[in-house]
Design a protein around this nucleic acid. Structure first.
Lengths: 112, 112
DNA sequence: TTTTATACCTAAGATTATTATGCATAAGAT
DNA sequence: ATCTTATGCATAATAATCTTAGGTATAAAA
């Protein structure tokens, strides 16, 4: 991912979330989509992306389908049934995390 | 920290933020404060906390002051001048991160 | 024709956390 | 009186996740 360590741990959730919306995507497409959505704030590096995709596949959350486009190959990933369920959980955790961090970061919590 | 990997990378910022509000705190106090503020959602483990405090100190962001309370010792940490400045940056980054993650996680972003 | 974009991949190293210890004092419970 | 829990510090082995730095190859643009 980019340079900020804050994103550490959130890559899998980001991938799952994108696949929840987009049905099937290939690696490079994911990096571009994230870059676009975040207006360049987050640039997923390939060294982080591909191992993450392989892990999600190994864990049974993603299925792969290889396609030949011209003379190049693409590996399309999509959510498995289990992956669809797990995505709901991961997003729940993410939202809880974001809420908690807002509390910690927002000013003037010390009154209580 | 607790069990969720999402918090990975945010511990230093959390510590700096607490010290921005509380002037000086000791390790155990930090764990309890975080637990209280997050209603138990986040439990900072000692194995994460103490190395993080030592790192912040080594980086010149924190100063230490040892105090004897009864027969036990406490190590109070407070922000250095540099630490105060850096806290502003870290919080800025954190807010940017949270905003970005909201975009990625929130439903129906794919319209654009 | 050289650079940039597309498209996949892995390996060494760094960072940061978890888990499991260790030591020690103080307070509360049986 | 004694055992457990809370307070308070710390480190070391392991795991997970990322950065950095490579590698291969096709296609498009400069």
């Amino acid at each position: 991912m980019g340079n900020q360590k804050l994103y550490k741990g959130s890559l899998q959730t980001i991938i799952l979330r994108l696949l929840e919306e987009n049905d099937k995507m290939y690696g490079y497409e994911i990096t571009q989509k994230v870059k676009e959505l975040t207006k360049g704030e987050l640039e997923i590096t390939e060294g982080a992306l591909y191992p993450a995709l392989h892990k999600l596949e190994a864990d049974g959350l993603l299925d792969v389908e290889v396609a030949k486009v011209g003379n190049r190959l693409r590996k399309y990933y999509k959510l498995t049934e289990q992956g669809t369920k797990e995505t709901v959980n991961r997003l729940e955790e993410m939202k809880e995390f974001l809420k908690t961090m807002e509390i910690l970061v927002n000013p003037k919590f010390s009154l209580e």
